[in-house]
């Protein structure tokens, strides 16, 4: 135990560990807050689809040789998110099937391009790290950290400033629209925010695992807490905890960062699920 603490404090001498933790916490925080809205609006699959689009965009960025791949991935993912939101509001087109098309298509094209125009000698490792998250969280440059901090602040501001509207629209879109809230404006803003969070989160857990980061904390929180505010706050705390815990354990035990964080999230979900069972039993007895 003493050894473990010493090892951890030793690691804290390195800036890259700090960078990883800062970025990890911010991504976990934004993804979990966003997650509550997405789960409640039944939009959680959009996150999945968009992460595949981001994967395709990153591949293209790598081939073109951009030093900061986010510069290309971000606008493309935002565009895809807006298109999906637009078609989702049009009842004629089946949102689900379209989402599946876009997400699978983007992965296929991305992987194909990487193979045709290889940028490094080890394609498999590259692809694997984009899909499952990589050690790249430990090799973040200070520029990347700054971008992440700025974008996270933007996302958090969006949630704080529009908290009441987001609640109202999530709970009852028709009522919100009828009483004069410009719901499509907020839906598009939300789409942009989803895209930003997803591109950010790719750094941490990779494109296949992003949904876990979005969905698990929200679902865990909803097992135990019953008001919107408490669900938001607790899912943020859960997510931050599992992110810090996951990053530190992955450094200590040399496990891949993304899956480690997700496993912590799963364990927390199981605990909250059990606590939730006891809670409902108690209320049933009381009434």
């Amino acid at each position: 135990m003493k050894e473990l603490i010493e090892t951890i404090s030793y690691y804290f001498h390195f800036p890259f560990v700090w960078y990883a933790l800062i970025v990890g916490v911010l991504i976990a925080l934004t993804a979990s807050i966003l997650g509550v809205t997405l789960v409640l609006k039944r939009y959680s699959t959009i996150g999945d689809g968009l992460s595949h689009v981001a994967f395709g965009a990153l591949s293209v960025a790598a081939i073109v040789g951009l030093t900061n791949e986010m510069l290309l991935a971000m606008p493309i993912t935002i565009l895809a998110a807006i298109l999906l939101m637009k078609s989702g509001q049009n009842a004629k087109i089946k949102g689900d099937a379209q989402l599946a098309m876009i997400s699978v298509g983007a992965i296929a094209i991305g992987y194909l391009l990487i193979n045709i125009f290889p940028t490094s000698s080890n394609i498999t490792a590259d692809v694997c790290s984009t899909l499952f998250g990589s050690i790249s969280i430990l090799t973040l440059s200070s520029t990347e950290v700054i971008i992440c901090v700025v974008l996270s602040v933007v996302v958090l501001l969006f949630f704080i400033l529009f908290y009441n509207k987001i609640f109202s629209i999530t709970f009852d879109e028709n009522f919100s629209k009828a009483t004069g809230i410009n719901t499509s404006f907020y839906n598009y803003l939300l789409a942009i925010i989803i895209a930003i969070v997803i591109v950010l989160a790719m750094n941490l857990v990779g494109s296949l695992l992003i949904s876990a980061l979005i969905v698990f904390p929200a679902l865990s929180a909803m097992r135990v807490f019953k008001s919107f505010k408490s669900v938001i706050i607790s899912s943020a705390i859960i997510s931050i905890f599992s992110s810090i815990f996951g990053i530190l354990s992955s450094i200590l035990f040399s496990t891949p960062v993304g899956p480690t964080i997700v496993v912590v999230d799963i364990l927390i979900f199981i605990i909250f699920f059990i606590v939730g069972l006891f809670n409902t039993q108690q209320t049933k007895v009381k009434v």
Partner: peptide, 9 residues
Amino acid sequence: EIVLSGFAS
């Protein structure tokens, strides 16, 4: 929370 959301607009 729900009743207050009547003021959201």
